[in-house]
Amino acid sequence: MIKAWRLAWLPFVLAAGPAHAHSPIPGIKGFYTGLLHPFSTPSQVLLTIGLGLLAGGFATETERYRLVVFPISGIVGLVVAPDIAELDAAMFAAAFAACALAALVPGRLHVLAVVLVAAGGFLIGVASIPDDGPVRDRLFTMSGSIVGASIGLLYLAGISLAIRERYTWPWVGIAFRVLSAWLGAISLLMFSLGLAAGET
């Protein structure tokens, strides 16, 4: 009986509608928008997941601290703001590289992995540049984007690490490699579709 009542919250959660709450801090809405921005397009989602799977193979504490290159390169991307004509294609290519590395040689080629994490952060930073508007609003949005992308990457890498450490069966590592291969294949397909669309 007690166990059954534990599910009583379920319909309320599933039936939840929009909250319509307002933000108490002026401009903070842009921050929230920025938080979700890194998960708003397939290219950014695939890149973030690919980097998360790659970073999940970082075995030691020292290696994990090197994830700090991600937000730093993201900020560099926001500040430098280069005009990359095929930004989505570049992100898909980076996602493919990250996924292929995670699938074929997980936990190895550490320098290359850190370079890919930095490149991914840079590209997401470039993709997070908001449209023209008041400087304060843009700063809020850009801050939210970098925070959102970094949290996303940390959670993905952390979940991956936690699963590997909690469940030490050989097939767990293999499952991550197969997942990485699948995501790499999808990224490569999207990369080519982007290029094909650009040619026509």
């Binding site: 074929l104 990485s180 699948w182 397909l189």
Partner: peptide, 21 residues
């Protein structure tokens, strides 16, 4: 396990060839 990892990655290259002609 290596074959199911290799297959989709290489298959994607084949798909790329098909898509870009």
């Amino acid at each position: 396990w290596i074959l199911p990892v290799v297959f989709p990655l290489v298959m994607a290259f084949g798909a790329v060839a098909g898509i870009i002609g």
